[in-house]
Simulated scan of single mutants.
Amino acid sequence: MIGPAFLQAQAQTMSTTSSSAMPPGIERSSFGRLPDGREVDCYRITNDNGIEMRVINYGGIIVSLKTPDRTGRMDDIVLGFDSIGDYLSDTYRQANPYFGALIGRYGNRIANGRFTLDGETYHLPTNDGPNTLHGGDVGFNQRLWHVEPFSSAEGRGLVLTYTSPDGEQGFPGRLSTRVSYTLTDDNELAIDYRARTTRATPVNLTQHSYFNLKGEGSTSVLDHELMINASAYTPIDETLIPTGEIADVSGTPFDFRQPTAIGARMGQKNTQLAYAKGYDHNFVLSKTPGQGDLPTLAARVIEPRSGRVLEVATTEPGLQFYSGNFLDGSLTGKSGRPYTHRSGLALETQHFPDSPNQPNFPSTILKPDKTYHSQTVYRFSTTASENQPHAD
Rank of each mutant, 00 (worst) to 15 (best):
S18F: 09
S20R: 09
P23T: 11
G25N: 09
R28M: 13
S30G: 15
G32H: 12
G32N: 10
D36L: 08
R44C: 13
T46D: 04
T67S: 12
R70I: 13
R70K: 15
R73S: 15
R73M: 15
D75W: 02
D86M: 14
L88Y: 11
Q94A: 15
L102Y: 01
G107T: 11
N108M: 12
R109S: 13
T126N: 12
N127A: 09
G129T: 11
N131T: 13
G139C: 06
N141E: 14
H146A: 15
H146Y: 11
G155N: 05
L160A: 05
Y162I: 03
G167W: 06
G170M: 01
S176I: 03
S180M: 03
T184P: 10
T184R: 04
N187H: 06
D192K: 00
A200E: 14
A200F: 01
S209F: 00
L213I: 08
V221W: 02
L222V: 09
L226N: 01
E238A: 13
I241M: 05
G244H: 10
G251H: 04
F256V: 03
F256T: 07
P259T: 03
P259G: 05
A264D: 11
N270H: 13
Q272A: 08
A276D: 06
S286K: 14
G292S: 07
A298P: 11
R300T: 15
R308L: 09
L319D: 06
Q320H: 13
S330I: 11
H341G: 05
S343C: 13
S355I: 02
Q358Y: 08
T371G: 05
H373Y: 11
H373E: 11
H390K: 08
